[in-house]
Design a protein around this nucleic acid. Structure first.
Lengths: 222, 222
DNA sequence: AAAAGTCTGTTGGATTTGCAACGAACGGAG
DNA sequence: CTCCGTTCGTTGCAAATCCAACAGACTTTT
């Protein structure tokens, strides 16, 4: 098996020497899969013992009711891991995972491997998983922070200023189109579009397509 | 040091023999603290190397801007653990923790202990922390699911049916008063009160104080 | 028992959102 | 170049919201 350099560089394998990867991947029952944009990788209700590692492209973690209302719970791009919570807990998925673009992912069995008899990798693997889960927790908490804002305008500012902070620059690109951003913030797309326009008119924001620039430091209340 | 039976029974110490606890707790720099209702246990911006284990009472994980808008991000009751994400990641807290009632908590150093040289407990402790974090992740995901509903009414039904499922009964108590529930769901209290009344009028719901009963199986869309 | 404080439901009006529809702009594919 | 599908902003109206204020029920304190 050839090992993607991206996989080797993933936080999942931090501090694990490259030469140890092949046996570890074998032990983790590594399977690479390709999907086209829009395809479903994992569907709600299923169980999985494998977590997913995005090699290229991006996936969306979504929750949709059967009237088509779609909520984007999370995003995973190259190097990111998804479904690790369900792989570890054994619970059935409460979300679906779909390809936001053409995507290649590596599925890795994790519970048996990490919880198996102590071996060379188990300890480091467990620590890496802990960091991963802690980071995921922070992500979710931040998303809740955006969603907890009362108006569409405030949700937008909360999200956009977080992105600016993340990018380390007032100008940045976001990985979502308008509909996806609306689904992510749980707001109406047209209302959001209007709110964006108003923010631009007020000179707080510039944007074109997926590129945004915050013009004032938007002293976010918190 | 005397060990609370509740602490010993915590998922944090699952599969760790009772006789091994005293040295482990010592190593974790265990400190018991008491707080009165309303007191702040940890404030946003601080760093902590200790996670908290609730012995009695309850704490709320909150995020508030300085106009007093308060969002309840999470709850922790007896046996529950909080701030573990920040203790593990070393990041400054993005939330505050306050006593929802008179409360006793045990603070435990975790990163050095769990990540230290492999010892008798480290491995089990790491696994327990993994389960804990995975569970916390599921909690946050579910909360996002409630918050992603568009109307107050739908948020309520989403939350209440989840509680009923959790309780294994259509009748159940919730650990939040109205204002707290509103803060938890990120809605207006008065609007929520109105929505509750309407649900009752429609025969979908009964409630008195913190006791609720779902009368119809409320086929939640998802 | 009275007073003070808390919690909950209710009301009314200004504001915001949800929803459906439409048209302009853009980017391939033929 | 033209056609076609997608994305994005805009509009109009019904519905839901936010916010402030108030009243009754209940608790706790004095």
């Amino acid at each position: 098996m050839e090992i993607s350099p991206l996989a080797a560089a993933s936080p999942l394998f931090r501090k694990i020497p490259a030469e140890d990867l092949p046996p570890l991947l074998r032990r983790m029952d590594a399977r690479e899969r390709q999907y086209q944009k829009g395809e479903l990788l994992l569907h709600r209700g299923a169980r999985t013992e494998h977590l997913g590692l995005v090699l290229s492209g991006a996936v969306h973690i979504v929750r949709e009711d059967f009237w088509g209302n779609r909520a984007i719970v999370g995003l995973a791009g190259p190097g990111d891991v998804f479904a690790e919570t369900y792989a570890l807990s054994g619970e059935p998925l409460e979300v679906s995972v779909l390809a936001a673009a053409d995507v290649a992912v590596l599925f890795l069995e994790v519970e048996r491997t990490a919880f198996g008899k102590a071996g060379a990798f188990q300890e480091q693997l467990k620590e890496n998983l802990l960091s991963l889960l802690a980071g995921k927790n922070l992500q979710l908490t931040r998303k809740i922070r955006h969603m907890a804002q009362r108006t569409t305008r405030e949700k937008l500012l909360s999200y956009l200023s977080a992105q600016a902070l993340l990018a380390g620059s007032p100008a940045f690109d976001i990985p979502l189109d308008r509909q996806q951003l609306a689904d992510f913030l749980a707001v109406d797309r047209s209302a959001m579009s209007a709110a964006l326009g108003k923010l631009r008119d007020e000179g707080i924001l510039e944007f074109r397509k997926n590129h945004f620039r915050l013009l004032r430091p938007t002293e976010q209340g918190d």
